[in-house]
Each structure stands twice: as C-alpha cells, then as structure tokens.
Amino acid sequence: MLKLILQRSMSLIPLLFAVALGSFLLVRLAPGDFLAEMSLNPQISEETLVRLREQYALDQPWYTQFGKWLVGIVQGNFGYSFAYNCEANSLIYERLSNTLWLALAGLTLTLLAALPMGLLAAKYRSSTLDRILAFLSTICLSSPSFLLALLAIVFAARTGWFPIGSVHSLNFEKLSATGRLTDFLHHLILPSTVIALRLVPSFFRQLRASLIETLSQDYILTARAKGLSERMIFQKHALGNAINPLISMLGNSLGTLLSGAFIVEVIMSWPGLGSLTVSSLLSRDLYVLIACLVFAALLLALGNLLADILLALADPRIRNPKKS
C-alpha cells in the first residue's frame, strides 16, 4: 500500500514537470506577449517596449526562462505576475482558496442531493420515483454548465435574492463573525449550486448502480435469508460497500471541478483559480498562468491518487495484482 502511494507520488514529479513545460511552450508558441497590449497606447514608444521586454526577461530564449523559473520553483517561488506587479504566490494562494471553497461547497451540495436520491432510487428501484429521479438526472447531465451559469445570473438579477460576483459583500470587514460566515455562504450558494447540478447526476447514477449491484450479491441474499431487517441490510452491508466507489469518485471529480468549472467562475465572476487562469492566459501573464496550470494538474493528480488509494483499500484484487 505504502509502496503504491510512494510510487504514485514519485510519478507526480515528471507529470508536473511535463505540465509546466507543456504550458510554458504553449504560451511561447502563441503569438503576442504580455506587453503587446501596451503597443495600443499611442504614448508608449517602441524603445519603452523593448526595455520592458528586457526587464521582464521576455526577450530571452524559452529554455533560459524556463530554467530560471524551475530554479525559482525549487525555492518555493512561483515567479512574478506582470499583470498584477506582485509575486505570483500570494495571488495564487488567494484564488486557490476561493476555488477550493467553491469546490468543497459544490461537493457538499452534490453529496447532500445525490446520497438521498441514490438511496431512494435503489430502495424503490423501478418505481415511478426512480424514473423521475433518473429523468431529472438526465436533464441535469444534458444542461451545459455555462447555460446553467447564465440562467443562474438571470435568476439572481430577476429576483435579487443572491449577490452576484465576488466572495464577500463590500461591508464584509464591518460584519460580526456569524455575519461574515452567512455573507460568505450567501455568495457561495449560487455558484456552488451550478457546479453541484453538473455533478449530481454522475454521483447519483454511480451510487444507485453500485447499491443495486451490491444488493444482488450473494451475501446480501444470505443476510436476507438469515432474517435481517431490510434496514440493517441497507445500513450494515449494502451502503458500506456501495459507498466506496463514490468516495473514489470524489477524488476524481476534483479535477473536473477545478479545470472544468472555470466557465462557471468566469461567467459568475467568482475570483477563483479558473478565472485567474483565463485572465492570465488572455493577458499572457506567463508565470501566473503556469502556476495555475501546475496547481490544477497537481490537484487533479492528488485527486486521482486519492481515488486509487481508496479503490485499492476497497478492492484487494487491484491492491495485489497477480502476475500472470
């Protein structure tokens, strides 16, 4: 087990290296750099641009630049943001925490919805309720997330029930501790709902399917034959086994949340890693962009690792692969 974790963690390093190198090359491959926008300003001369390029080391070949960046990484320094004129680290951490909160809230909402839905659907399998839930989940699955995000802000605009954009209200500093918490949650609820709507169907389906599969296993039949109550069967045997794949799914969906939800962040103005990635890509803010991508890749890989570990814990056949 420990070997698996160690092996996988070690394999993270080349992966992250490849992501960093890949994104670095990509940014360099695309024409235009951070300073291109300045050339629009008629008051800035070409000499100024050349000087600034020199200052930002944009005139050096990519490998020199990349090498320097790598040295910085080892020292825990993600480089400098041209666009914000500050260290990339502080920027990234701030946005990362916002994204993680959004992801956490989204996952919580997903579980809160998917667990009862899955349980009910498996329990009353093939009933009208099951079909309604299946239908609802198909509907959710088929709605593109930016459409949901757009509808959500139309909804917010029409009703005025929810704030739009940003993480806090303007008077956040003046609020009490509980006031701050509710203010934060109030801002969080709409974007996390949009994210949850995309995740609920897959969680629901997974849970329902694995519950049904578990319930048809021999040991459940045995348990039934022993005369155990349905409640005990559900609680003690079925749920425990069926929930494992769900937990590994949590790990897997982290990546989807971080990279896939960027359009939600952009449309709903949530200052997270996704919207930072997009803005840094559009403004060619090189080091911030790479840091964002590396962080996204890291989280995704950690999520996958977590999923694998949990899967291995649940299934001995994968834990100890037989040599054939």
Partner: peptide
C-alpha cells in the same frame, strides 16, 4: 501500462481548452 497511464494523466491534466486557444491563434 505505467507510461501510458502517465501520458493519459498528462492529457487529462492539461486544460484542453487552453491548448486549443493557443493552437487557434497559431
């Protein structure tokens, strides 16, 4: 298998959209 999985993970970890944008401008 190990190599393939890492390659697959790399593909899954690279945000596809950005590559497409970059390629589109190239």
């Amino acid at each position: 298998d190990f190599t393939c999985m890492r390659v697959i993970e790399l593909f899954l970890a690279l945000p596809a959209l950005y590559l497409i944008i970059a390629l589109r401008s190239a």
